[in-house]
Simulated scan of single mutants.
Amino acid sequence: MSRRTDNRHRAATLCREATGLPHHVCLRWAAEGLISRGQPVPDAESPAQRAFEARVALVLVYAMRAGARLGITAVRPTPSGLGIELHPDLSPGVFAALMPRVDPGSGDLEGVPGLRLEHRRDGLHLCCVASGGAIRILQSVPAWRQPLPRGRMVYVGRRVDIPLHSAERARLDDWADGPAARDWLLSRLLRRPLLVNAADVVLGWAHGRGYGHSDGQPYGYGDLVIEWCCDRGVAELEGRLRRSGLATAPPGIGPGDPPVPGVIALENARVVLRRIIRHECAAC
């Protein structure tokens, strides 16, 4: 086997392991030059698309933390967009977590700001009415028709003709002030769900929440912490994420600080992987 053919097969294998796509599709992408051994999963070309995917990733890692992982079983990532397949049992929770909702009393916002649902010729799409980013749902998912959970939070609305709530607009303005490297890193994470799912029981936080770097500095707005119970192998998962191209510096973005075990970085954005011990877990 030639070196070129071997690299194509290796790129296809890495793509399949990260995305869940059939191997023959990944191999065709490698032959067409869409993926490579150094970057085996296609990136989103549009900054608006990367930002939307990053916000979706951040919400899902946090909202699906109770053993459900991301709720995604496979993705079809292309430079122009992203398609996702949802776990049939978890899809109601995915939709409930993603749809933006506001606390009438405090004005606090949960979910993905600006996200709405739109039916197009090729199926259902999650759309950002502020920037134009979109994610296609690859299979028929009846969960979106179900009533959303009721509570103190009020859902903004599902349809693309519903304008932004003031709380959504404020959150989007705040997000726009964040680092571009964060959008690259979290968009890439969403495009590698099978690797994230390997953590088994996932707990995710952002914006600090009492955590700090090894140098004593608090986690910042570009950081995401992924934790899981039991010894699932932090080093092994980190190695698989790095081999998938998660930390490869894209155009215009510099690399992260010198590698630290358990920290994957692009410039000033980080994904932190760590094991926690839960006293109620018999396996810990």
Rank of each mutant, 00 (worst) to 15 (best):
P179A: 02
P104D: 09
C284R: 12
N268A: 14
L246H: 02
G38P: 04
L117E: 00
H87Y: 09
F52R: 06
A44V: 11
A249S: 11
Y155I: 09
W29P: 03
I276W: 06
R182L: 09
A68H: 08
W175G: 00
A18C: 13
P251C: 03
N268H: 12
I84C: 05
C15I: 12
L124Y: 03
L58W: 01
R116Y: 10
R159K: 13
R120K: 14
D122W: 10
R120T: 13
E236G: 02
D173M: 14
A265W: 09
A269T: 02
C128F: 05
R169L: 08
A134R: 15
F52K: 08
H23V: 15
G216F: 08
P193R: 13
P255R: 00
A181I: 05
A283L: 08
G210F: 08
P255N: 07
Y219S: 00
V25F: 02
G262R: 12
D103A: 12
R116I: 00
D89I: 12
P92F: 11
L138D: 11
C284E: 08
P88I: 05
R10S: 10
D103E: 10
Y219K: 09
A74W: 11
R50K: 03
R209E: 14
W175S: 03
L185Y: 01
R169A: 04
V156K: 10
R121K: 03
P47S: 04
V271P: 02
R191D: 05
P250L: 10
A167F: 06
V59H: 01
R55Q: 07
G111F: 02
G67A: 03
S2R: 14
L273Y: 03
L126S: 07
V154S: 01
P40S: 00
A44P: 00
L126D: 10
G123D: 13
D231S: 09
A249H: 06
R4S: 05
A12S: 00
Y155G: 00
L185D: 01
I226G: 01
F52H: 11
G33K: 02
G123Y: 13
S80D: 03
L138C: 13
V225G: 05
V59C: 08
